[in-house]
Design a protein around this nucleic acid. Structure first.
Length: 555
RNA sequence: GCGCCCAUGGCUCAGCUGGAUAGAGCGCCAGACUACGAAUCUGGAUGUCGCAAGUUCGAAUCUUGCUGGGCGCACCA
């Protein structure tokens, strides 16, 4: 609808120019917005204000000229008005709004889908936590944001792949193996001092105990280096399996798990660095290889190969992103914890050196979560083993409440996550507000069918003109806007817009419900209203599905 | 010291990329179930959009400076 209006205005402006009513102007694109105030119409455009500067005419005058030349071939406009400094306000006919209900019925679960992405291949990489311990609450937010961004992009027609990058080649992993070894020896009776760098969570002990159960004490005396790499392997694998299970129960799955080790096979990283060196991006200085990232806006150049000959994480990351592009993705989205923001210019420099445009890589920063219990902060530290795991959150507050809570704010703003509130089934917890609206609709429809023997109506059997209560018009307009909300959320990669939309839709519905009876003696009206609430339930389901949150029929 | 992000009612946050009278939720006060689910609804109070300039028809939104907070600034990942 919005697009339609935009096109009509554009045509009107062009027509005015042709008729020399307006001087030649170049207009970038027509802004149409939904005004906050209903008196300002269903849509409003500021074209006249934009053109005023170019045309050097009074904006209200221009608006009037456009208004007079506004063609309406489909007969959808009820009236137009010029207001304020020169806004063109447009009111759509009620019956046109009412007809959008038919569209929702036709589309059903596809209402809101579009072809905006045109099948473009996109990859979203997220979570990507080292398999050195179970996922904690901090990872959970990134997991949900990544998952929902993927759903959003899929909904608007992108071909999206979800990937988890396993950082299994660095020091951290070595520390993991060492930690298991120390626990292993401790369990076998040795007295152990744990260094700062070691992981001390109970899960380490479990893994060590498992080794003893299966293989006994054979590693007690074996060569330490070999044992550590062996322990690193089994620990990493077992932890990764746990991570996958936790994520699955959180509703998050991946299409690919990509191991950092993969990049080093066949000297992949070295070969790439050689190539970049020939290109001049990588250079050697004092036995160290550097990448000239400062040439692309980074604050200084970065080491890619250390003095000891080992490549840095960054070197592998350039190779990783080259690998991603080589798999044919036209857009790559990385989701990071906000504490990594300083790394962005470096990586952008890297992909530009690879010959890609900076905006082919979008980086979403997810702020860290402030975990509270009843208003009191909960301290966390992976190494010491003091943390609240994703698993614990799932068990305590449930998947739906957890996911919804993580989606209520923009991802780059800090989020307080209070366990006590998140598990409360009360009005402090917005997820139930939305789910309740859905359950309520289902309940009414059940009642209509079972108690009143009503067959749920289809559009052609109802008289949509009966849906003319103010709340009904508001609901219809709100639903008609849904596809635009999805597109906007997808374009800006901002999932939180959906939760705000849902909250608004649920709110208008609840209010409507309390004021008007759906089921009444008036059969025609009952049918129309049943159809209306059915449409609402479709929109609620579609939106909740994108969020990965259930739309329960009963609660 | 340098860089990035943030600052909006008592609290937690939106604000559609520059629009018209700045909005929600929570909390607080007062009300609504012999009618489809009260996990709901109705009404009420609360603002120098951190401060100061600038850009223009128009600024919470863009620019600059300042104040206050978070985070980065590795041959860690």
């Amino acid at each position: 609808m919005k697009n339609k209006i935009s096109v009509l205005i554009e045509k009107a402006v062009n027509s005015c120019v042709q008729q020399k009513l307006l001087g030649a102007v170049d207009l970038p694109y027509i802004e149409v917005e939904v005004p906050a105030n209903h008196d300002h119409g269903d849509y409003a455009s500021n074209v006249a204000l934009i053109l005023a500067a170019q045309a050097k005419q009074n904006p209200r005058k221009i608006a009037q000229i456009i208004q007079e030349n506004l063609a309406d071939p489909e007969n959808i406009i009820a009236r137009t008005q010029i207001a304020g400094p020169g806004f063109l306000n447009i009111f759509i006919k009620e019956n046109i709004w009412q007809q959008t209900l038919q569209f929702i019925e036709e589309k059903k679960e596809n209402f809101g889908r579009s072809f905006l992405g045109n099948g473009k291949k996109v990859q979203v990489e997220f979570v990507s936590a080292n398999p050195t311990g179970p996922l904690h609450i901090g990872h959970a937010r990134g997991a949900v944001v990544g998952d929902v961004i993927t759903n959003l992009l899929t909904t608007v027609g992108y071909a999206v792949s979800k990937e988890y990058y396993i950082n299994d080649a660095g020091n951290q992993m070595n520390n993991l193996g060492k930690s298991v070894l120390l626990r292993y020896r401790e369990l076998l009776g040795e007295k152990i001092e744990f260094p700062e760098t070691c992981y001390r969570g109970d899960y380490i002990k479990d893994i060590a105990a498992d080794v003893i159960r299966k293989e006994g004490n054979v590693y007690f005396t074996l060569d330490e280096g070999k044992t550590i790499s062996y322990f690193t392997g089994i620990a990493g694998q077992s932890i990764l399996e746990e991570i996958k299970i936790d994520l699955r129960d959180f509703g998050v799955t991946f299409d690919e798990y990509f191991s950092e080790k993969e990049l080093y096979k066949n000297n992949g990283v070295t070969k790439l660095l050689d190539k970049l060196q020939k290109q001049g991006f990588v250079y050697i200085n004092e036995e160290t290889q550097w990448a000239g990232t400062s040439g692309y806006g980074d604050e200084k150049d970065r080491v890619v190969v250390r003095k000891n000959g080992e490549p840095t994480y960054f070197a592998a990351d350039i190779a990783y992103h080259q690998n991603k592009f080589s798999r044919g993705y036209e857009m790559i989205i990385d989701i990071w914890g906000a504490d990594h923001h300083g790394y962005m210019p470096r990586l952008w420099a890297g992909i530009q050196a690879l010959g890609h445009d900076k905006n082919e890589l979008k980086i979403i920063l997810v702020q860290l979560v402030n975990l509270l219990r009843g208003g009191v902060p909960v301290a966390m530290s992976t190494r010491s083993g003091e943390f609240v795991t994703l698993r614990e959150v799932l068990e305590e507050v449930g998947k739906d409440a957890a996911r919804y809570n993580f989606l209520m704010r923009r991802s780059d703003s800090h989020l307080d996550f209070d366990l006590e509130i998140a598990k409360k089934q009360s009005n402090e917890n917005p997820v139930y507000y939305v789910q309740y609206a859905h359950a309520r609709i289902c309940s009414i429809m059940r009642m209509a069918q079972q108690e009143h023997g009503i067959v749920l109506p289809v559009y052609k059997d109802i008289n949509p003109a009966l849906l003319n209560e103010p709340e009904e018009m508001t609901l219809i307009k709100l639903m008609a806007r849904y596809p635009e909300v999805i597109e906007g959320a997808a374009k800006s990669l901002e999932p939180h817009r959906i939760t705000f939309y849902l909250n608004e839709l649920a709110s208008v519905f609840h209010s409507y419900y309390n004021k008007n009876k759906v089921i009444s003696d008036n059969k025609e009206l009952t049918a129309a209203r049943l159809f209306l609430i059915k449409a609402i339930s479709i929109v609620l389901e579609n939106a909740l599905k994108i969020l990965g949150v259930n739309a329960p029929e009963k609660m």
